[in-house]
Nucleic acid binder design. Structure first.
Lengths: 228, 228
DNA sequence: TGAACAGTGTGACGTACGTCCCACCGCGTA
DNA sequence: TACGCGGTGGGACGTACGTCACACTGTTCA
């Protein structure tokens, strides 16, 4: 594990609560996992009690409806944690995890983590806070599904991705989200075609430029306005 | 606090992890709150760090969109907990709590609870599990919003309410949900009119009977099938 | 060099559901 | 008795968005 990895890990809610010594001890238990683009880490319905933190690359969490349609819960980048639900609540996974780009993950098993939860209350409290934040975010997304139209949701999704993966440049805010328009559509709960049209419309207005698996946001303010 | 209240409280995830002695000690800190139908306990945007458990009656959690439209997150009955997000993650409340029926609540403040979180790891772990379950449920609801049509969501909502508030009788499963059709509509993310039509359709098919703020489910199986 | 394929761009068409209406019913209050 | 008022029932109409269809591009693999 590189220094950079250690740095990324320390930003995850799980490690935030630990002092240098504790973090070091916990790090000793992580198993590193590497995935190629498109490779799946685990599938909906499987049992599993491992939690992961993204070290490098991007992972998507997806659900499949009975009739085979897909729904993208979220896209996670470096420092973000997932898979913890099955750890706190021992049930089959309710989502699949698939690599959006080549990526490296830090994995921690139930047995490695349990002593930290029971022996270090600060850790549990930090995790409670992290889950509470997630619940809030999820409720926000739900409200958007009900109240906001597809272009609005696309705008919001882009801004969210920009916040986490965006890189400012002289020409605009470069968001290399690595998602196909199909995946973007699954993320906002719409069809690929309507998402495409929304993007084309934004581009025609000069708010952004479309690139392969990326957009360059030219007018953040307009986009933000459209998202509400 | 009556014996019945003690019984109800003990089913809340917060108390589940405690032994008889611990539960007794924690109960000593609860403040009882009474609300009349329609009365609001707290509002979106307010600060607050109290957690509540419903002792009797029903509470709804609602969010209001910027343009004034309402969204009903959930309806909670006896034994169910709410308001804990602001306790774990100290931010303004993101939903309002309003009494759907006359009701009584047990309230616990941050200061009363903190020692239990840090001193009794089982409590924190139980709460983590409760939040994980909530997150799973919320994700389910989100998937329904994307994939299921309004009648399907209505069917699902009724079955969910039936599971929690339903009382079997000779004629059918009596679900006294205490919600107006408007509230039901806000719960499933649809307009009052379409929910009404869905209900009328179900009734015409003989799957249920509509009553004031209640339904009697006559054919659970058909309704379940329709919900998928 | 071409064939196959994944991803994108765009138009035509159908429909589920929202909005706008109004009628009706029961209930409390003047 | 009449009058509002909150809630329900249900029709007419518009539209956002899904589905289908097809053309176009760039990339990979014979």
């Amino acid at each position: 594990m590189t220094d950079r990895d250690v740095d990324v890990l320390s930003k995850a809610p799980l490690f935030e609560a630990l002092d240098e010594q504790g973090a070091k001890a916990l790090r000793a238990n992580v198993a590193e996992v590497r995935l190629a683009r498109g490779q799946t880490l685990f599938n909906e319905g499987e049992t599993g009690d491992r939690l992961y933190v993204v070290l490098e690359g991007k992972i998507k969490l997806t659900r499949t409806s009975p009739d085979g349609r897909e729904n993208l819960l979220s896209v996670l980048g470096p420092g973000e944690m997932f898979g913890e639900l099955s750890l706190f609540d021992p049930r089959p996974r309710t989502a699949s995890a698939v690599a959006v780009t080549e990526c490296r993950l830090a994995g921690l098993g139930h047995d490695d983590l349990r002593p930290w939860l029971t022996g270090h209350p600060e850790v549990a409290v930090h995790l409670l806070r992290a889950l509470a934040q997630r619940l809030r975010r999820t409720n926000d997304v739900m409200a958007d599904l009900v109240f906001t139209d597809v272009p609005g949701r696309v705008a919001k999704a882009l801004l969210d991705l920009a916040e986490r993966f965006g890189q400012p440049s002289d020409v605009g805010l470069h968001v290399h989200h690595d998602l196909t328009q199909e995946e973007l559509a699954q993320l906002v709960g719409a069809s690929r075609e309507t998402v495409n049209k929304a993007l084309a419309d934004f581009a025609a207005r000069g708010w952004l430029r479309i690139e392969a698996r990326a957009v360059v946001i030219l007018d953040v303010e307009r986009l933000r306005k459209r998202s509400r």
